[in-house]
């Protein structure tokens, strides 16, 4: 089931003569985590801005499932929470005061049950804030002024504010940038909790190991185009085979990708598939001079795609 359907999305800033987003068509799966990676200037922020309804005159369509409200921004306001890369809160207020203020902005919609699928289980504001503080491990600093917090706590407060909306879809822009390993681990754990709660997560990051660990899907953006959009699985394997000279390779299945004359690569989704392929090769009586396999990591996918595009 898809949470967001994107069809032929293009966008050009008025002061640019090139498209920052160029003909992107893809689906974001519901209740899954999708990572958006790409070099600086690839269009990640513009892509998120478009999905958040922050761009007025884009081309193409963006549809939330279900589509609440009459336009994209209405759907976003009802379902989506945004965690910007900047600390988007009031530094003069304490953690609790920030959360109290932002929750007051949701008051009307909560009573009409528009924010969340869980609206039937709406908690009181106070209980919700306490839950969020606990969930984001902010208890010890709940009454501290936000400006006095360390970077890790600030990042968590940034996420906590998004949670007051009780969103079904959560966009996070580099949520772990510039923080210590302990805070990073807490945030990764938080994201995994969100996944378990069935939220749809979409986040940008330069930390490919994070993307690999958390994300179910990966979108690689480059020059405004989605150059790669595929399921990420830690069980993805790459099997590389070098056949002996003279071996007839025309009979190889289509999934075998030829790297050079006798050099082939095949992507596999599980150890079972690997086993099946090894069995098939053994039965085929083809002479193999070299064979190895490795995890098809996000890093490898990303580097490979970048190298491919450069050539």
């Amino acid at each position: 089931m898809n949470a967001i359907k994107i069809n032929q999305l293009s966008y050009k800033y008025s002061n640019n003569d090139y498209y920052s987003l160029a003909d992107i068509s893809l689906n974001i799966k519901a209740h899954a985590c999708t990572g958006i990676i790409g070099p600086n200037g690839a269009g990640k922020s513009t892509f998120i801005s478009a999905l958040c309804g922050l761009l007025d005159d884009y081309q193409g369509t963006i549809e939330y499932q279900p589509m609440v409200g009459s336009n994209l921004l209405d759907a976003v306001k009802a379902q989506v929470a945004l965690v910007p890369q900047e600390y988007a809160f009031y530094p003069q207020l304490t953690v609790k005061q920030n959360l109290n203020y932002f929750i007051s902005l949701c008051a009307k919609n909560k009573s009409s049950g528009q924010i969340s699928e869980q609206s039937s289980e709406q908690k009181s504001d106070k209980a919700l804030i306490n839950d969020i503080i606990e969930q984001c491990v902010l208890t010890t600093v709940a009454n501290s002024r936000a400006s006095k917090l360390s970077g890790g706590y600030k990042r968590r407060l940034n996420i906590a504010i998004a949670l007051v909306k009780q969103p079904t879809v959560l966009f996070l822009d580099e949520p772990t940038v510039g923080i210590d390993p302990e805070s990073r681990a807490i945030i990764i754990n938080l994201l995994e909790q969100f996944k378990r709660q069935g939220k749809t997560l979409l986040f940008t990051s330069h930390m490919l190991d994070e993307v690999e660990k958390i994300c179910d899907d990966v979108i690689v953006l480059r020059e405004g185009k989605a150059v790669f959009n595929e399921q990420n699985s830690q069980e993805n394997l790459l099997l590389t085979i070098t056949f002996a000279q003279g071996v007839e390779t025309k009979t190889l299945p289509e999934q075998y990708q030829q790297l050079s004359q006798q050099h082939f690569q095949v992507k596999l989704n599980s150890a079972v598939e690997l086993n099946e392929q090894l069995m098939w090769l053994a039965n085929s009586a083809m002479t193999i001079t070299n064979l190895n396999y490795s995890a098809n990591s996000v890093d490898r996918l990303y580097q490979g795609k970048q190298a491919e595009l450069k050539t």
Binding site: L54, A81, P84
Partner: peptide, 12 residues
């Protein structure tokens, strides 16, 4: 500090 853009995505 980004609060205005965040508010844009809040139901107000």
């Amino acid at each position: 500090n980004g609060t205005l853009i965040r508010l844009k995505t809040f139901p107000i």
